[in-house]
């Protein structure tokens, strides 16, 4: 079973995204409300998450900073990271494009196709 970590400061969004992926894909979902908590949770998770979904604007460490920290961490470095953002303007998209995320997904996401989008990007057939 796939294990996915969601990092978002909005509790409602964490819950809806978790529920959506649990019910549509049957994945196991971990959630964290901040970048720091997410890094800690991911590093101590056994097995490691198969993919991480994170928000951009979070109090404390924002998404891109959290991502950079993960890249510096030898345990977490290979895990695919998706940015889940409500920032949809071209200027923001261009800013995110060069950062090395697996893909940028936009809010509001469709709860019925979110897991499918992730699987497609990662080439997961199950």
């Amino acid at each position: 079973m796939r294990r996915i970590l969601i990092i978002d400061d909005e509790e409602d969004i964490r819950e809806v995204a978790a529920l959506s992926m649990e019910t549509t894909a049957g994945w196991e979902i971990l959630t964290a409300s901040s970048g720091a908590e997410g890094i800690l949770l991911a590093a101590n998770s056994n097995p490691l998450p198969d993919a991480i979904l994170m928000d951009v604007m979070m109090p404390g460490m924002d998404g891109p900073t959290t991502f950079r920290r993960m890249q510096e961490n030898p345990v977490l470095v290979g895990i695919p990271v998706f940015l889940l953002t409500a920032k949809v303007q071209g200027v923001d998209q261009r800013r995110f494009a060069g950062m090395g995320f697996t893909a940028v997904l936009f809010k509001p996401f469709n709860p019925l196709t979110l897991a499918g989008q992730i699987s497609e990007k990662l080439g997961w057939k199950d």
Partner: peptide
């Protein structure tokens, strides 16, 4: 736009899951 999208994400997500029958 960002501030409106954030609550809409929860609303759309919750309604979508409920109305899908899942």
């Amino acid at each position: 736009s960002h501030e409106l999208r954030t609550p809409l994400t929860s609303i759309r997500g919750a309604l979508g899951l409920l109305s899908s029958g899942l």
